[in-house]
Simulated assay, not measured.
Amino acid sequence: MTLATAEFIRRFLIHILPKGFHRIRHYGLLAGGSRKTCVAHARELLNAIPPSDHDATDEPTVIRPQCPCCGGRMIVIEVFERWRQPRGPPESATANRENAS
């Protein structure tokens, strides 16, 4: 698709929020720290079968760092030096592609 410059800029600027606004990415049952309690309450109201607990010995425990912004668990894909831009895909992504083929 080829766009005129003005049309491209217009479409691009649609995605930029004005100052003072904050983009909300998750809301409803899956929002924030109340996710587990909300989903558990929804299962209770629907009389759904609770998920089975997996043995801790089946899966290795992976300790993930905590996000400084939201407190959720982060999955570190790549670490690079400050003020440097990453070059190419992360090492883990290329390793996954090589293992898949």
Rank of each mutant, 00 (worst) to 15 (best):
35 R>I: 14
35 R>Y: 09
36 K>V: 06
37 T>S: 14
37 T>A: 15
37 T>I: 13
39 V>D: 00
39 V>H: 00
40 A>L: 13
41 H>F: 07
41 H>Y: 04
42 A>R: 13
42 A>V: 09
43 R>G: 01
43 R>T: 00
44 E>V: 01
45 L>E: 15
45 L>I: 13
46 L>N: 08
48 A>Y: 03
48 A>P: 02
48 A>K: 04
48 A>T: 01
48 A>W: 05
49 I>Y: 04
49 I>Q: 05
49 I>V: 08
49 I>W: 00
50 P>Y: 04
50 P>W: 01
50 P>D: 00
51 P>F: 05
51 P>T: 02
52 S>Q: 14
53 D>T: 13
53 D>V: 13
54 H>A: 15
54 H>Y: 13
54 H>F: 14
55 D>F: 09
55 D>K: 08
55 D>T: 07
56 A>G: 06
56 A>Y: 03
56 A>W: 03
56 A>L: 04
56 A>T: 02
56 A>I: 00
57 T>H: 07
58 D>L: 13
58 D>G: 03
59 E>S: 08
60 P>C: 00
60 P>K: 09
60 P>A: 02
60 P>W: 06
62 V>T: 10
63 I>R: 07
63 I>K: 10
64 R>W: 02
64 R>C: 07
66 Q>P: 01
66 Q>E: 14
67 C>S: 12
68 P>G: 13
70 C>M: 06
70 C>G: 04
70 C>L: 08
72 G>M: 12
73 R>L: 12
75 I>E: 12
75 I>V: 09
75 I>P: 00
75 I>M: 04
75 I>S: 07
76 V>S: 00
76 V>F: 00
76 V>W: 00
76 V>P: 01
77 I>V: 14
77 I>T: 12
77 I>Y: 05
78 E>I: 02
78 E>G: 03
78 E>L: 00
78 E>Y: 01
80 F>H: 15
80 F>C: 10
82 R>A: 15
82 R>S: 11
83 W>I: 06
83 W>N: 15
84 R>Q: 06
84 R>W: 03
85 Q>W: 08
85 Q>D: 10
85 Q>Y: 11
86 P>R: 04
87 R>P: 01
88 G>N: 02
88 G>K: 04
89 P>C: 08
